[in-house]
Simulated scan of single mutants.
Amino acid sequence: MNRIDDVLNRISNSTQNFLGYPLAKDFSFQEFAPFLDVCLNNVGDPEAPSTLAIDTKDVEKECIAFFADILSSNMEEVWGYVTNGGTEGNLYGLYLARERFPNAVVYYSESTHYSVKKNLHLLNLKNIVIRSQENGEIDYQDLEQSVMLRRDLPAIFFLNIGTTMTEAVDQLDEVKRIIRQYAIKDYYIHCDAAFLGSIAPFVEPKPKFDFSEGVDSIAISGHKFLGGPIPCGVVLVKRQHRNRIANSISYVGTMDTTITGSRNGLTPLFMWHVINKFGKDGLAKRVKECQELAAYTELQLKAIGVKAWRNNDALTVVLEKPSEVLCKHYQLASEGAIAHVICVPGLQKAQIDAFIKDLQFERLKAS
Score class of each variant (00 low, 15 high):
4 I>D: 15
4 I>G: 05
6 D>I: 13
7 V>N: 11
13 N>W: 02
14 S>T: 05
23 L>E: 07
30 Q>W: 06
30 Q>S: 15
32 F>D: 05
36 L>V: 00
40 L>N: 11
42 N>I: 09
45 D>F: 11
45 D>P: 10
48 A>N: 12
50 S>C: 09
51 T>V: 08
53 A>P: 00
55 D>N: 15
56 T>C: 05
58 D>Y: 07
58 D>T: 11
66 F>V: 03
67 F>N: 03
68 A>D: 06
71 L>G: 09
72 S>E: 15
72 S>V: 03
72 S>W: 06
75 M>A: 10
76 E>S: 12
77 E>T: 06
79 W>H: 04
81 Y>T: 02
82 V>H: 14
84 N>A: 11
87 T>Y: 11
89 G>C: 00
93 G>H: 00
96 L>T: 14
96 L>C: 14
98 R>I: 13
101 F>S: 15
102 P>E: 14
106 V>W: 00
106 V>A: 04
107 Y>E: 03
108 Y>A: 04
110 E>L: 06
114 Y>G: 02
115 S>W: 06
119 N>G: 11
125 L>S: 13
128 I>M: 02
128 I>Q: 03
129 V>D: 03
132 S>G: 02
132 S>V: 03
132 S>R: 14
134 E>D: 11
141 Q>H: 12
141 Q>F: 12
153 L>N: 01
156 I>W: 06
156 I>L: 05
158 F>I: 01
161 I>V: 06
161 I>D: 15
166 T>M: 11
168 A>E: 09
170 D>Y: 00
173 D>R: 07
176 K>A: 05
184 I>T: 07
187 Y>F: 03
189 I>R: 02
191 C>Q: 02
198 S>L: 05
202 F>N: 07
205 P>F: 08
206 K>L: 06
213 E>F: 09
216 D>A: 04
216 D>I: 04
217 S>F: 07
219 A>W: 08
223 H>N: 14
224 K>I: 08
225 F>V: 01
231 P>F: 08
231 P>V: 05
232 C>D: 12
233 G>K: 14
233 G>H: 14
233 G>E: 13
253 G>C: 01
254 T>D: 05
254 T>H: 06
255 M>Q: 01
257 T>D: 01
258 T>F: 06
258 T>A: 09
260 T>Q: 08
266 L>P: 09
277 K>Y: 10
278 F>Y: 15
280 K>D: 13
281 D>N: 12
284 A>G: 10
284 A>W: 14
286 R>T: 13
289 E>N: 04
289 E>F: 00
292 E>Y: 04
298 E>D: 09
306 V>N: 01
308 A>T: 13
308 A>Q: 12
310 R>N: 00
316 T>H: 07
317 V>F: 10
322 P>R: 12
323 S>K: 07
328 K>P: 00
338 I>G: 01
339 A>Y: 03
343 C>K: 10
344 V>Q: 10
344 V>Y: 07
344 V>R: 05
347 L>A: 06
350 A>R: 03
351 Q>S: 13
356 I>K: 00
358 D>V: 01
359 L>H: 04
365 K>G: 00
